[in-house]
Nucleic acid binder design. Structure first.
Length: 170
DNA sequence: TCTCCGATTCACT
DNA sequence: GTGAATCGGAGAA
């Protein structure tokens, strides 16, 4: 069962843990399709979240996070890795879920490299996209929570929030 | 224009 | 445990 935009039209703290255990489906240009079970996600919640790119306000880069539920937010980090995010909540509320791991890939950079994800699918909506979507096959993960990674610059208040969600069954 | 730095990974000590 | 690779966005000037 494919997830539609109403699934993403909720608070990111509801969506992020529920995305763990879902199937991330990627269709390549040559027609090949692969499905990977999502093992780890993180929540980035609006302008007040100092770790969220949108904390700086609306800019060309963060514009997609204001576009509404289900939009794909891709950005380059450290000049070499693409990060994959799914926007949640209604229009003009900048929240997103970072997909940190899926299938046998245990890092966001490795995942996007394996799936050939780059800026060219930035801003597309994952609920109506033919190149990538998410399915629910009824799998039930054992959730664990932890602080988010690599955001010390946001200050302790935000860096310590338990907004990372992991499937212990892996 | 120019400078700083990051939602990472990997090789090396 | 430490540091390099590498580049576009954001803010300063």
């Amino acid at each position: 069962m494919k997830l539609l935009s109403d699934f993403f039209d909720r608070d990111v703290l509801d969506v992020a843990p529920e995305l763990v255990g879902k199937l991330l489906v990627r269709k390549f240009d040559d027609g090949k399709v692969i499905k990977l079970r999502i093992t780890e996600t993180e929540a980035y919640r609006g302008e007040e979240d100092k770790a969220c790119h949108a904390s700086k306000g609306r800019t060309a880069r963060t514009e997609v996070m204001y576009k509404g539920p289900g939009c794909i937010y891709i950005y380059l980090i450290y000049g070499m890795y693409w990060m994959l995010n799914i926007v949640t909540e209604k229009e003009n509320v900048p929240q997103a879920v970072l997909i940190r791991g899926a299938g046998e890939y245990d890092g966001p950079g490795k995942l996007t490299k394996a799936l050939k994800i780059t800026k060219d699918i930035n801003t597309l909506n994952i609920s109506i996209c033919s190149q990538m979507w998410i399915e629910d096959d009824g799998y039930c993960p054992q959730l664990a929570v932890a602080p988010r990674i690599g955001i010390d610059y946001a200050g302790e208040e935000w860096a310590l929030k338990p907004w990372r969600f992991i499937d212990k069954r892996n």
